[in-house]
Amino acid sequence: MEIDPFIFRLSIFILSIFVGYYVVWSVTPSLHTPLMSVTNAISSVIIVGAIIAALATNVDSIFTSSSIFGYLAITLAAINIFGGFLVTQRMLAMYKKKKKDKS
């Protein structure tokens, strides 16, 4: 009997939860705020769905009701992607080691 592709996706999902569990526990507590902002940015990979929705025009018109929701989602996700990665970068740039101490 053929295995439903859904089962494969479910396997990816469950295994990723475990990967996430172990990876996140190894994140140092001092970087928990950047962790939140970067997870924010990567969860906006949902933009993939938004692009498909926006480009799915059966007829010649660019704006159908479904593509409009796609364009809206693209805008929201883009705010998150750029905002999330940039603010993470900005925060991480501030974490410095003790260097000079020439006293």
Partner: peptide
């Protein structure tokens, strides 16, 4: 959407938030 990037990311972010 049958998209593995989204499924992986969703699971990562979901467990990250839960741990926090």
């Amino acid at each position: 959407l049958e998209n593995s990037a989204l499924i992986i990311t969703g699971a990562l972010v979901g467990s990250s938030g839960a741990i926090l």
